[in-house]
Design a protein around this nucleic acid. Sequence first.
DNA 1: CCTTTGTTTCAAAACGTTTTGAACGAAGGG
DNA 2: CCCTTCGTTCAAAACGTTTTGAAACAAAGG
Lengths: 178, 178
Amino acid sequence: MHDTLENVNDSTVSGLGRLARFFGFSDVMGRLYGTLLLSPNPLSLDELAGTLEISKGSVSMNMRDLERWGMAKEVWVRGDRRKFYAAESDMWQIIRSVLGSREQREVQVALQVLGESIEKLQAAEDELTPEEQELARYYLGRMADLQSLFQFAQLALHAILGNGESLNFDAVTRIEID
Amino acid sequence: MHDTLENVNDSTVSGLGRLARFFGFSDVMGRLYGTLLLSPNPLSLDELAGTLEISKGSVSMNMRDLERWGMAKEVWVRGDRRKFYAAESDMWQIIRSVLGSREQREVQVALQVLGESIEKLQAAEDELTPEEQELARYYLGRMADLQSLFQFAQLALHAILGNGESLNFDAVTRIEID
DNA sequence: CCTTTGTTTCAAAACGTTTTGAACGAAGGG
DNA sequence: CCCTTCGTTCAAAACGTTTTGAAACAAAGG
C-alpha cells in the first residue's frame, strides 16, 4: 500500500486512540474505531487483531464496549460464520450517546450530592457550636459555588444535546452565550 | 468536629477528586483543591498531608501542579517560614485556564493533522493505482467527517471561553445551537 | 557556622490497569 | 458424532502510574 495512505491511516488511528483516552475510554477502543472508520468494508475480529497487532481477546472485549456505546455495529456477511464489524458513521450520534448518558449522569449525581449537603448543613444548624456554625456557613458558600459550576455544565450539555433532534454537523454554525 | 460537617467535607473532597480525574488530572490534585476550598484559612503543606493522610512529597508535587494550573495560590503568613496555600476561588477562571490552554490546543493539533492528511492525500493522487485512488477518496470522506467534528468542538470552546471577558456563572443562562 | 525547620527531589515500592494466551464454549460442516 | 473454526473468558504477566520515604537542599535564627 502507498506510503501516503499508510501515514494517513496511522495518524488517524493513533489520533482516535488519543481522543478515546481523553474521553475516558481505552486507547484500543479508539484505535479499533479508527481502523473500522478507514475501512470501506466491515472487518472481522481476526483482521482487526492482525492490523492493530493486538490479541484476539483484547479485540473481542473492546469491540463489545464499542458496541455498547453505539460506536460500532455488527455486520452479517452471508455464508460467513465470522462476526464482522463496521464503525458507526454518524459521529453526532456517538457524541450524543456519550454526553447524554455518561456525562449527563455525572453532572446529575454531583448536583444531587451538593443539594443533599446543603440540606444537611441547614438541618444540623441547631446542633452546632458557634464555631461550627460559622464553618457551616462557610461550607454553604462553597457549596453554592460548586452548584453554579455544575448547573452551568448541565446547561451546556442540554444546549449541545438539544431537545432530541438529530443535529447535522455542517449545520452547526453558531453557539451563543450571554 | 460535628458529623455533618465531616460528611459534607468528605463527599466534597472525594467528589472533587473524581472531577479532577475526569479532566485528566490526578485524584490527589482534586482532593487537595477540595480541602483548600473548604478551609477558611490557608493551609500548610503539613496540614494538607495530615488531613488527606498522604505523604508530604506527594503534597509538594501536586501543589506545584495545582499552582501551575492556577487552581491554588501561595499565601505568605508573616513570621512563618512555612508555605501556606489557598484555593483559587474564581472557578470560572480555572475552567477558562484548562479549556483555554489544554483543550483548545488538543483541538488545534487535531485540525492541523487532519488538514495535513487531506493535503497529502490530494497531492499523492497521481502516484496511486486505481484501487488506491478509490481508497484515498474514501479516506478523504472520513477526514471530512472528523474535521466537522473538531470544528464543532472548536466552536463550542470559543463559545464557552468567549472573547476574553470574564464570565459570571450566575449570568450564564442561555446557549443556543442552530 | 551550625542547628533547626521546612521543602523538594527521586529511586524504589506499591498499586492499578491492560494485555496476553491458553482453556473453554459454541456453532456448523463433513 | 467428531473436527474445525471462531468467539469469549479469565488468570497471570507485563506494563504504567502513583506513592512513599529518605536524602538532599534551602532558609532562617541562634
